[in-house]
Design a protein around this nucleic acid. Sequence first.
DNA 1: CCATCTTTGTGCACGCGTTCACAAAGGCAT
DNA 2: ATGCCTTTGTGAACGCGTGCACAAAGATGG
Lengths: 256, 256
Amino acid sequence: MATGRTHRPATRSRGIPEATVARLPLYLRALTALSERSVPTVSSEELAAAAGVNSAKLRKDFSYLGSYGTRGVGYDVEYLVYQISRELGLTQDWPVVIVGIGNLGAALANYGGFASRGFRVAALIDADPAMAGKPVAGIPVQHTDELEKIIKDNGVSIGVIATPAGAAQQVSERLIAAGVTSILNFAPTVLSVPEGVDVRKVDLSIELQILAFHEQRKAGEEAAGAGADVSPPPLRGGAATNRKGPDGDVPAVMPA
Amino acid sequence: MATGRTHRPATRSRGIPEATVARLPLYLRALTALSERSVPTVSSEELAAAAGVNSAKLRKDFSYLGSYGTRGVGYDVEYLVYQISRELGLTQDWPVVIVGIGNLGAALANYGGFASRGFRVAALIDADPAMAGKPVAGIPVQHTDELEKIIKDNGVSIGVIATPAGAAQQVSERLIAAGVTSILNFAPTVLSVPEGVDVRKVDLSIELQILAFHEQRKAGEEAAGAGADVSPPPLRGGAATNRKGPDGDVPAVMPA
DNA sequence: CCATCTTTGTGCACGCGTTCACAAAGGCAT
DNA sequence: ATGCCTTTGTGAACGCGTGCACAAAGATGG
């Protein structure tokens, strides 16, 4: 999971729980697949299986949107696709800008899932003057100087930050000042933003660390009693040898 | 935020709540930054601000690890860095493989955050024979045929899937059969995996859709009463014009 | 038109996670 | 040594999310 929202203590926006909102795209994807195969209706049980969730949860989620199902039959696929899309705001076009066209930024620009879901890459922005004009995914990269103008000219309200960690906060401030109110942040930093601005964070390194935790736990359970686990090495203080990470991020290599 | 875990109803692994585990990497990053600046101790208030969380939450999180603070003073930075790293299993080396070396896979291979945190890219794997041998981020790409051998020879237990959606399930099955028990999935599909295998999903498109929802809500609140919002278009049924998305993913463009 | 069967929609209970608020603990100055 | 001040660690309350289980609703067949 991208690691989550920032600020706002789970505001139930217009009666729809945040957890439900997070699942709607999942349902939408499953429904669109069914729609392609021209399946007319689907039961909560089937759809839940396709989306990888509990069927009761799915029904409750849909109940927040209204009563769109037919008892004894299921849900009309096309109708549900439309309703969810409308609820998510995908019936309109969302111009987005991607700031920071490194490896990741380029990958994002090329990512098909953007354009196909109502999101249009309005511009690619990078601080490196050498990048300016160079086309990535068919779109010419523009220099950071143009940022404010681009945002305003295109009416962009969603920005994607794929810069090094060091630049992220400043970029976010410029985006917000220019009118952006939603940010998808790939840089490994905590952005501090004013009230009213939504930030979602995707942090690859954090995801791996969480996996490592579970992995270690599994390994520890199997070989329960192989020492070196329960006994805490009592070293206190002691200089950690720290090397600076490549992308302005900081490594966490341990002394022992 | 990567979008979250699959299966396993929030198992409290060894007494540490899942939500806490998810925040530990965040604390670790803030602490490592402090460590670099040679800050000896830090209060829960300061550290919480740096990590972007509530200080009470942080203290409770740390209380699950043990009593590592000193009242009236705060926490010893170095010691805490070590304890969290150990808890997360970052004191050991985790070999990972990346499957699917497209734009995203290449970005991941080049991502510095991996190597710097105890994760070592053991191999890059792609199904395209033309890619074989070509170095990406200094590591030669190997063909999918070698997958099982690579996993076993390197003792890999964590796999990263960056393939198109269509290939993801099959790749996951081969990874798991070869011994992988943790998967970080970037493909926009629900993976079904056997008990005991952890899957975390990062879905760029879903994150954007969630932002779009909030963005729409904000816009709707400002112009409360601009019509076209509360009145639901009563079209029922009706063929959606569906185009196939680039990466095997499915678009959700609405009829209206 | 009635009986039966399927599937939705939801009331309810439970558990996890968050937050408040405060007592206990330790440093530090005098 | 003693008292003050800072900060931790946690008990307790609350709210959100989840899942069970069932009644209501509707389709379908006779």
